[in-house]
Design a protein around this nucleic acid. Sequence first.
DNA 1: TAGCAAACGCAGCGATCGATGCAATAATAG
DNA 2: CTATTATTGCATCGATCGCTGCGTTTGCTA
Lengths: 185, 185
Amino acid sequence: MSTSAPHQTRPGGRSARVRASVHRAVEELLGENRSEPLTVPAIAARAGVHPTTVYRRWPSLGDLLSAVAASRFSGDVVVPDTGTLRGDLERWVTDVAVDLADPDVLALMRATVGTAGPEGGCACVADRHAQLAAMLERESARGGDPPPVERAADSLLGPLYYRALFTVHPAEPGWARGLVSALLG
Amino acid sequence: MSTSAPHQTRPGGRSARVRASVHRAVEELLGENRSEPLTVPAIAARAGVHPTTVYRRWPSLGDLLSAVAASRFSGDVVVPDTGTLRGDLERWVTDVAVDLADPDVLALMRATVGTAGPEGGCACVADRHAQLAAMLERESARGGDPPPVERAADSLLGPLYYRALFTVHPAEPGWARGLVSALLG
DNA sequence: TAGCAAACGCAGCGATCGATGCAATAATAG
DNA sequence: CTATTATTGCATCGATCGCTGCGTTTGCTA
């Protein structure tokens, strides 16, 4: 057999264009903070796509939001490589803090967590967890003794996301850096 | 005029009963994790109240959820008084962790954050912040040197709420206690 | 280039949401 | 106890949501 699975999905051309358009429409509509709730027809209209398409491709609004969040929060922050764990973490938390300061990002995260349930929350932070684990792993390979991933997540991602979701987020510059000091001593 | 403000609101009797019933209905409907989104008619039906009443008393669903969250997250955890800051914090974070392990509480928090925006988030943690500030204040009056409220919130509430919203929340017993050690050294 | 199948658009349908006058109830002041 | 008025219930209406066949377009493979 040349290719065992003939082609169950069709990821190129118009499909990809529609998906990107719908994703962008979701981000845009969530960005402009409207009082009305987010609905599929509104998304389709903004995307220039028929509502039927959205209903058929994504089983529910929660799945759509999860997909948008996973796509948006993957690859938006690159894992730095400064040579030391402290340097990597300091640069990384700063980048994450900058990303979390964007109102559009916050709106997307709120909607995803509120609509898609626990899976939505995981979709928002899965890539961040992987990045953090990669940096700690590298430090371990370098011969260092990094803290476990759970503790690092508690000390870094915890305050970052807590402030983003539950406070008005003043976010003084340099504050995120202090989290690294609190973790590494 | 005998009394300058005659009576603009009427908080007793049936009104209070309706409000309590609607609040309870919201918590119940969010508790049983349904795939359909939360709507006003569903809440009214569960509460045994006409939908018009809900539409008129609460300007939007977000306001209703904020009110429910503020009511639910006020007074549910008492501020302990063990004599030492460490003892107070350890008991308190344990209580908060237990509360956050309740699926109904998580569902209410997700919906509030996702629907009511930043105000919803504040409504969920305002009382917790006040409690934390009270314990630190008491330590200060006792002659101690407690950490600032922001750092305590970062170290304690941050991991607690981050794990509750963004992870599957295994929550080993005793883990919350470790947060206090990480904060106080 | 030709053929196949996946994906999309269109028209239309039941259901339900959210809102609006009007009448009835009941909580509070005197 | 009586009067006032905030509050709720009822009936109803327009708008829109979410979904389902069917025909058409468009990637993908041979």
